[in-house]
């Protein structure tokens, strides 16, 4: 069964003041996969995320999501396509209650248009009801229900991380890009999160691409691994195969100067 990949990037390039942060990255992400994006610090992983989600504009290269060109489009358009991302440093909307953080993310809310708000004041109430229920359900999954009415700014670091993930899920993504989702949350919650990813993939067919440094998580929970170093993709494949790839080991040893994949 060879399905078209849900996401393809080809020769993405970006320089900042003469330094090439991403230097011709090319990759495919299989539909319905949980793909890990790894690489030593400075490999350009986060920059790559920013480039394909519209936060930066690539100097060169193409990116397609589900048959649609995404490079050069603004982030909100890409998000509405169903390609949703989270951030490495959480962006909880601190002065808004947790529940508002969640409900904000729901797509297709007619009440977000000023015209509807002014001229069709009832049109959006029903949708708001649905969104509220969904939000509570999702908060339940992440053990955040009791905090629903707290301001997001009062949450702990780990809770914010969960909130950001739950919020991204509210956007009903088909392709979810997570930038170090496990960083800063305790192992129990981390496992819950991973289980949830598996379930979303199984039930709703969501595809995941996540940046991760914890090799145990990568080896046990992803079915494909893409390795970046110095702004390019240097290897991709099954976790086991990538682990023994010569180029990958060199990149880790050369790039980080220590450690590597174990």
């Amino acid at each position: 069964m060879t399905e078209a990949p849900i996401f393809e990037a080809e020769g993405i390039e970006k320089s900042f003041g003469g330094i090439r942060a991403v230097n011709g990255a090319t990759m495919d992400v299989k539909r319905g996969s949980i793909t890990a994006l790894i690489g030593p610090n400075g490999a350009g992983k986060t920059t790559f995320f920013n480039l394909i989600t519209g936060f930066y504009r690539p100097d060169r290269g193409r990116a397609r999501f589900d048959g649609r060109e995404v490079q050069g489009r603004p982030p909100y358009v890409i998000a509405r396509f169903g390609m949703v991302r989270t951030f490495q440093i959480t962006k909880a909307l601190a002065a808004m209650p947790v529940i508002d953080n969640m409900m904000l993310a729901a797509p297709d809310q007619p009440g977000e248009s000023l015209r509807n708000v002014l001229f069709r004041p009832l049109a959006w109430r029903k949708r708001e009801q649905e969104v509220h229920e969904q939000a509570i359900e999702l908060l339940d999954v992440f053990n955040l229900t009791r905090l629903a009415d707290h301001y997001a700014g009062t949450l702990s670091g780990g809770q914010r991380k969960l909130l950001e993930l739950a919020r991204a899920l509210m956007a009903q993504p088909r392709f979810l890009l997570l930038d170090e989702p496990m960083a800063g949350i305790n192992p129990t919650l981390g496992r819950r999160l991973l289980d949830h990813m598996q379930r979303l993939r199984a039930e709703d067919g969501v595809t995941f691409l996540f940046i991760e440094h914890d090799m145990e998580v990568v080896m046990n929970h992803s079915d494909r691994v893409i390795v970046m170093a110095e702004g390019r993709v240097i290897a991709e494949g099954e976790p086991q195969a990538v682990r023994s790839d010569r180029a990958v080991i060199d990149a880790y040893l050369g790039g980080a100067g220590h450690g590597g994949i174990e």
């Binding site: 909100y76 998000a79 989270t86 962006k91 601190a94 508002d100 904000l104 993310a105």
Partner: peptide, 16 residues
């Protein structure tokens, strides 16, 4: 309010 709090977060969630 989301835009006030964090423009990038709002954009990442599909808001212009």
């Amino acid at each position: 309010r989301a835009v006030r709090e964090d423009e990038d977060a709002a954009r990442a969630l599909g808001k212009n």
